[in-house]
Amino acid sequence: MFKRVLMASAVVSLFAACSSTQPPAAVVAEPAQPVVVAPVAPVVDAQAAAQAAAQARMQAERARLAGESIYFDFDSNAVKADQQAKVAAHAEFLKQNTQQKVQIQGNTDARGSREYNLGLGQRRAESVKQSLEVLGVKDAQLEAVSYGKEKPRAEGSSPADYAENRRADVSYGQ
């Protein structure tokens, strides 16, 4: 898209340059060389358009996946059966986009020591990382880190809040 606009504006400025620098016809000693005038209508580049569409689809899929958190049971770091499909979707995307790196961020509920919770969140992140590797994602694409109990999504202390915070997020960056 961007490329095409550039091209069109280049054509316009070419015309502008011609009209202002062309000497008056009467003074011309020799006939002007034949000039091939580029068409003013935009050129459609089929490959670029397809690429742009694919890029847009990829970005939409990436945005969708970034919201797909993996949830865990209390005191557990096992990826539950009902969370497997989300892990598989992340894996599929990462295998198709091998330049994409992600950070898997493990979280815990608010109970107990900060550093021990950092360890528990790490365990959850590592568990998701291993599941992705089993599904064929390269280690170099993955970093498992922990936020422990420091960055709760739910700030309350109800069972539902705690469940919301027992989670790993897959961050695709900016």
Binding site: G119, Q122, R123, E126, S146
Partner: peptide, 9 residues
């Protein structure tokens, strides 16, 4: 310090 390069803390 605690590091996680082994896959655990």
């Amino acid at each position: 310090v605690v590091l996680t390069s082994s896959g655990n803390s």
